[in-house]
Amino acid sequence: MEKPELIKDGKRLDGRTPKDLRPVKIEAGVLKEAQGSALVEWGGNKVLAGVYGPRECIPKHGADPYKAKLKIRYTMAPFCSKGEHSRSGPNRRSIEISKVIREAFEPVVLSSQFPRSQIEVYIEVVQAEGGTRVASLTAAAVALADAGIPMSDMVSAIAVGKINGQLVVDLGKDEDNYGESDVPMAVTHRDKQIVLMQMDGLLTREELAQNIDEAIEASEKVYELQADALKKSYEKEERGKLKL
């Protein structure tokens, strides 16, 4: 198949320049029943995250006597995209993403404050358009903060990559499918630790180094939006409504 032209006159398919993000909208505290929650609309992605806990670890023999266990479940809804997602629930891909998201949060969540318990994060991809794992991670970070789970740092995620020989930030679905490389990354805010990095496709060392720099820069923008969302959640009237 012939490769489609993803960049024309320095503009991408949706008119963005290489360093532009898709429009990102983050809202915290959207679910009433969850302890903390967030909705992230990132381009065509719609991701909901809900946090419960710390609460009793189930099964009990799985409890860690020194720290809380972080349990993350990423699932895609059957209707989330044009591809085949016939049944929701764990599959090979979502198990992998759950794992990498968990490993991204394990260094920042201060889990030793809650021994023998578990913290659950449920992430539902309602609509997908490329880059759901970074959108999910961003949503999960906001939901954890909204739940009051102590964290040493905030995590922001962004994908970078290469399309038509050009390094770009925040790849959409077509760019991901037809581009040369896709590198989802998650970066902590304060000390810029990289807590998630995966790579699909090929990049040279130099390109990767440059990509990482761009990702760190772009994650700052995502962080701003996350912080903003948390502040805004206190303006909402229905904030903190109880179940009575």
Binding site: V108, L110, S112, A145, P150, M151, S152, D153, M154, H189, R190, D191, A227, L230, K231, Y234, E235
Partner: peptide, 18 residues
């Protein structure tokens, strides 16, 4: 004992505005 740092710096300035 935590090797910890900032999660949120919920800016006071913003809060005032709200």
């Amino acid at each position: 004992s935590k090797s910890a740092g900032a999660a949120e710096e919920s800016g006071e300035v913003k809060k005032k505005g709200i």
